[in-house]
């Protein structure tokens, strides 16, 4: 019995290590690419070269990298904050105060999510121009803070929340908003952390819509810059790899920051108390 158990264990670890290698290998290649010249990257060179400094210098002098990073950070920061407030309130409203009327609204919203964005670009663009939000970061933020995706996700995870806790708080005389902010949110930290990571990624990597409403290089975000860099007759792959690595770092940092909430079950531990 004991032996059988350990064989299973070994198989599990073999599986984990294999998946680990598959997941991580392309990142090694990306970082190696950062240190090589364009020609070497195209040739598929897998070892480290000595072009890193020159790639970084090119990136920060030829392209306005600092400003572009700040643009991305600004847009993404406000978007994530907005989503966490607006969309999580909506998810809470739909799940906790379930009513037939709101269910119909919910069904409609979910259906909306299925419309491909390309089909909506032209009317949405007209709207943005009429609201004088063309070429502004606020236009970008405003259009993304009501995220059907996050509302849907949070509502599905809120289903696991024991309704009795809310009932108990009401009996204690707590107001509805107080229950939401000081009882509900703290006990759903892992779901909020996931929502934060996902909205950060979505906003940081957003491409099609920022492309349409941001008109000048001054307003550009990182993703837009990488895309225009890689479309050259002769792309500078080393510099592009550097830009990609730098653009990926913030997401990794955010993930590290939030992932501690995945380590222990929040609800589980709060119930135990």
């Amino acid at each position: 019995m004991k032996k059988n158990y350990s064989i299973n264990r070994i198989l599990v670890y073999v599986f984990l290590v294999f998946t680990f290698i598959v997941s991580v290998f392309p990142f090694y290649w990306m970082v190696a690419g950062m240190t090589n010249s364009a020609v070497d990257v195209i040739k598929g060179k897998m070892t480290f070269g000595n072009q890193m400094l020159s790639n970084i210098t090119t990136l920060f002098t030829t392209y306005n990298m600092v400003r572009i990073l700040l643009n991305s950070l600004k847009v993404t920061g406000f978007t994530v904050l907005g989503i966490l407030i607006v969309s999580s309130m909506a998810a809470y409203g739909f799940q906790i105060y379930s009513s037939p009327a709101r269910e119909k609204v919910y069904g409609l919203i979910i259906l909306f999510m299925m419309v491909p964005f390309i089909a909506l670009m032209i009317p949405l663009f007209r709207l943005i121009v009429k609201m004088h939000l063309l070429n502004t970061h606020s236009g970008l933020v405003l259009t993304s803070i009501a995220s059907v995706f996050i509302i849907f996700f949070l509502r599905q995870s809120f289903k696991a929340f024991p309704y009795e806790i809310i009932q108990a708080a009401r009996v204690d005389g707590a107001g509805e908003f107080r229950i939401f902010f000081s009882i509900f949110i703290p006990s759903m930290k892992s779901s909020y952390a996931a929502a934060a990571i996902y909205s950060f990624m979505a906003s940081w990597n957003a491409y099609l819509w920022p492309l349409i409403i941001l008109q000048t290089d001054k307003q550009k975000t990182v993703t837009l810059m990488i895309s225009s860099m890689s479309s050259a007759y002769f792309p500078e792959w080393g510099v592009i790899m550097t830009a990609i690595v730098i653009a990926t770092l913030p997401i990794i940092i955010v993930f590290f920051g939030f992932q501690k909430y995945f380590v222990q079950g929040m609800l589980g531990s709060s119930l135990k108390q």
């Binding site: 492309l211 349409i212 008109q215 000048t216 290089d217 837009l224 895309s227 225009s228 890689s230 479309s231």
Partner: peptide, 12 residues
């Protein structure tokens, strides 16, 4: 004011 975009993006 020269805006730099990918080719497909200019068209789009």
């Amino acid at each position: 004011e020269i805006t730099e975009l990918a080719k497909a993006d200019v068209e789009q």
